[in-house]
């Protein structure tokens, strides 16, 4: 980790020294050949896709875990769990491919061009759903049986029990799950690259194409030279810092729990 961070820093340093940090936020456009390095549209791209996906996946994942723990019969629950684990293991290119072939044409019918922020959000949702669903499932499994029996013995409804007892008791576990899914959403490259359209622009609607930071790196690294290359490393550094901060946050939540 330290090595990677050091490497990123070394590679990013030349441009940080020559044009400064501010350039990445205030330059007019992202056109490295014209010494213009505005990352803001891509930062928005990453932010919007990740936020959208987390907002969708979190409730869905929690509902799926509640179903698994408290409603589904044992056999169905364990089959369902297996399925989600499987979903977590599918390579991201496959998701991207599916998105490109199925999702994008569908969205295109709704509102062209199809490759869009929405497609990115939906694909990411699908990809991070297993993360939150599995973490939530494991968290709910730890809620003491005594609470549930106590609630049942008082004739409390399942909704009341879920809202007032199970969810609050699982707060920190669910929070950890969210941090993990955010990390995954921000870091995901291949699938979003395939379905997002990759136009460098701050999206004005969910049907507009966007380019994320990760996609930008993947697309341009192969031919980037000098300052351009260095600028890509700056965006890599930015991503890594966010991930590290998330990891620290997750660690703090865990500490809080002990």
């Amino acid at each position: 980790m330290v090595l990677i961070l050091g490497f990123l820093l070394r590679e990013a340093l030349p441009i940080l020294q020559s044009v400064g940090i501010k350039a990445f936020l205030t330059d007019k456009t992202w056109s490295p050949s014209q010494q213009s390095y505005n990352l803001v549209p891509m930062i928005w791209g990453t932010l919007f896709t990740a936020t959208g996906a987390v907002l969708l996946a979190t409730p869905l994942g929690i509902i799926s875990a509640l179903f698994c723990q408290y409603y589904a019969p044992k056999a169905i629950a364990s089959g369902y769990r297996r399925l989600i684990e499987l979903l977590a293991g599918i390579p991201s290119v496959v998701y991207g491919f599916w998105g490109l072939v199925v999702l994008v044409p569908l969205i295109n019918q709704l509102h062209p061009p199809g490759t869009s922020l929405l497609a990115g959000i939906l694909i990411l949702t699908l990809m991070i759903l297993p993360t939150i669903a599995l973490v939530a499932d494991a968290t709910f499994a730890e809620v003491p049986q005594a609470y549930l029996l106590g609630a049942a013995a008082m004739g409390l409804s399942s909704w009341g029990t879920i809202w007032q007892i199970i969810l609050p008791a699982s707060k920190s576990g669910l929070f950890t799950g969210m941090i993990l899914e955010i990390g995954r959403a921000i870091g995901e490259t291949m699938a979003v690259l395939m379905v997002c359209g990759n136009v460098v622009q701050t999206p004005d609607s969910i049907f507009a194409p966007v380019r994320t930071l990760t996609a930008n790196i993947a697309l341009e690294m192969a031919y980037a030279l000098d300052n351009h290359r260095s600028a890509l490393f700056v965006s890599g550094l930015l991503l890594l810092s966010v991930i590290i901060l998330l990891a620290i946050a997750a660690e703090l939540v865990k500490w809080d729990r002990v």
Partner: peptide, 17 residues
Amino acid sequence: LRRRIGMIFQKPNPFPM
């Protein structure tokens, strides 16, 4: 029914609130 018949458990189990 469970409102008419209350139950107290061996291990005290107040809710975490």
